[in-house]
């Protein structure tokens, strides 16, 4: 006899028993111990057919190739910039990945990007030891100029973007801001001071209330 103890969209904690019996299968962020299936993270239950999975409500960002992130420059080397990725692992932005322009050997790199500045970059390589390479060459990749940077838990990034970008579109329309979301939880908002503040508040609201149903309607109400 198999039995499931949780319902779709329930909040569960690490170690919470989700189901018992071999009719169910452990999906993402769960594990099986004997016949039981347990959560291995604080999150929300998803049940698709016989597979149980948990969408985390919090957690550290894990760098992945192809992710667009926002990072802070903290050091300059002979060959480029070292950037803080908001994880335990810094990344390298090589000079040739920062600009298409020809850089002379003795050129002062701080004139291009200074320490303390933020960049919007793509992750191009991650090794098993989490050595990361990033590139600023590509559409919408650039140095951060103007506006404000804010940070949220990276697990909430999909909610800020919304289904097919619906939430971010709503935020942009209602606040008149340009918004660039990094997968590592850093967000660049630029518009008027009032618009930026409105966007910041709405994004913080999404971060805190992502577990609620009808999030888009709630954000809409907040922004009106």
């Amino acid at each position: 006899m198999s039995e499931v103890f949780v319902a779709e969209r329930d909040v569960v904690i690490p170690g919470e028993k989700l189901a018992d019996g071999m009719d169910f299968l452990p999906g993402e962020n769960t594990y099986r111990d004997n016949s039981g299936i347990y959560s291995r993270v604080l999150g929300i239950v998803g049940l698709s057919g016989r597979v149980l999975k948990i969408t985390p409500l919090a957690g550290p960002y894990v760098p992945r190739i192809g992710d667009r992130i926002i990072a802070k420059v903290f050091d300059i080397t002979m060959s480029g910039w070292r950037v803080d990725t908001n994880t335990a692992y810094s990344a390298l932005l090589n000079v040739r990945d920062a600009t298409t322009r020809f850089i002379k050997k003795e050129e002062d790199l701080t004139q291009i990007i200074a320490i303390g500045e933020y960049v919007v970059v793509n992750i191009t390589n991650v090794t098993s030891q989490n050595l990361i390479d990033v590139s600023m060459r590509g559409p919408d990749l650039c140095k951060v100029e103007g506006g404000r940077i804010m940070s949220i838990n990276s697990m909430k990034v999909p909610r800020v973007i919304g289904k097919a970008g619906s939430m971010i579109q709503l935020l942009k329309e209602k606040t008149g801001c340009d918004i660039t979301v990094g997968q590592n939880g850093l967000i660049w908002v630029r518009g008027t001071a009032e618009g930026e503040y409105k966007a910041e508040r709405a994004i913080k609201f999404i971060e805190a209330k992502s577990h609620l149903d009808g999030l888009t309607e709630r954000v809409q109400a907040l922004l009106n």
Partner: peptide, 11 residues
Amino acid sequence: LADAGIPMRDM
């Protein structure tokens, strides 16, 4: 630790 979203087998 659970609140931080650290993967944990149990409490």
